[in-house]
């Protein structure tokens, strides 16, 4: 049995089939932002069943995530998603929305529930309430520092999941402004949000995924894994809902090795090849999110000087 869990996110069956999962212990299936995401597991129940089976056949934990901001009209489909998760023996569902948490807890009592980062768990009292409503694991709000997360974890007595790498979710919308460009660019939904689209100002950048907005930089906690394991964290996520199979395989491989090293008794240092890999997959650069109580896009650590922000060199304005 592993002494830690490394998991990731995959939005559809095509991506799941193409991804080498050997570095991971678990997979969250589904796209939380948009019902129109290409072949979203949450809209294709047969795909979801196959996805759960495929993950389990690989000996991994199969989790099913759910929409972060569902309107009433989403609920019938979400109930079917929960039914599939339950009947296919998914290991847990992830709820970012407290209405979904309630439905899962009341209508599918055997299904463990993980609470996602959009559920706004900021304090131990918030976590305690959710625990009473069936939560078995919490992703604290992304804005919390490690110190606050530790306080929350100890106060609520619930396991926490930590985003250790990837683009950090920053917002969710009812509006997909990328649709404005379908005609102009000749690219249609659902391909649009899978393009490498960034909104930028000066040295600031965010990844636009249509109805979601994410950090432009990749959160990277490679240097700080010993701090995380020393605080007792054992469940780690590489956020990759909009990333490629190569990203998952290579970044996942780095973290598998790095977390094992951080948990071992020996000296921990970040290998050059790890840096090379994570840099290669982070065109806008790396950051630490809010883990050190700083502005989310800052990076703190020995490597900070080497992590330059992107440079603006637009080739054309259309």
């Amino acid at each position: 049995m592993n002494d830690f869990e490394l998991n990731t996110t995959i939005s559809n069956l095509k991506n799941l089939r193409e991804t080498d999962l050997s570095s991971f212990d678990g997979v969250y299936l589904g796209n939380i932002y948009c019902r129109l995401f290409e072949q979203n597991f949450l809209e294709r129940l047969d795909d979801l069943k196959e996805g759960i089976q495929r993950v389990k056949d690989a000996g991994l934990l199969a989790y099913v995530t759910t929409y972060a901001a569902p309107r009433n009209s989403f609920l019938p489909k979400l109930r079917k998603v929960l039914e599939v998760a339950s009947s296919a023996n998914a290991d847990a569902v992830e709820a970012h929305n407290l209405g979904v948490l309630r439905i899962a807890h009341e209508e599918f009592p055997g299904l463990p529930i993980h609470v996602g980062g959009f559920a706004n768990v900021y304090t131990d009292s918030g976590a305690a309430v959710l625990e009473e409503h069936g939560a078995r694991r919490i992703t604290p709000n992304y804005e919390l520092s490690l110190e606050e997360i530790d306080e929350l974890a100890h106060g609520a007595n619930l396991p926490t999941e930590i985003l250790v790498h990837g683009k950090m979710p920053l917002g969710i919308s009812d509006y997909c402004f990328l649709l404005d460009y379908e005609e102009k660019w000749g690219v249609n939904c659902p391909t649009l949000c899978q393009l490498p689209l960034f909104v930028k100002r000066d040295t600031w950048a965010m990844r636009s995924v249509g109805k979601g907005i994410m950090s432009g930089k990749d959160v990277c906690m490679l240097e700080h894994l010993p701090r995380l394991v020393a605080s007792g964290h054992r469940t780690f996520r590489i956020e990759a809902a909009y990333e490629t199979p190569a990203y998952r395989k290579e970044v996942g491989g780095v973290y598998r090795e790095a977390i094992a090293a951080a948990l071992s008794k020996g000296l921990y240092s970040v290998a050059d090849r790890w840096w090379a890999t994570v840099r290669e997959h982070a065109p806008v650069g790396l950051c630490n999110g809010f883990y050190f109580g700083k502005t989310g896009m800052e990076y703190l650590g020995a490597e900070s000087g080497m992590l330059t922000p992107f440079t603006l060199h637009a080739t054309a304005v259309e």
């Binding site: 901001a69 569902p70 309107r71 009433n72 989403f74 609920l75 929305n97 209405g99 948490l101 309630r102």
Partner: peptide, 8 residues
């Protein structure tokens, strides 16, 4: 609090 649906 982000309530949008009857479950919320």
């Amino acid at each position: 609090c982000g309530a949008l649906n009857e479950g919320d």
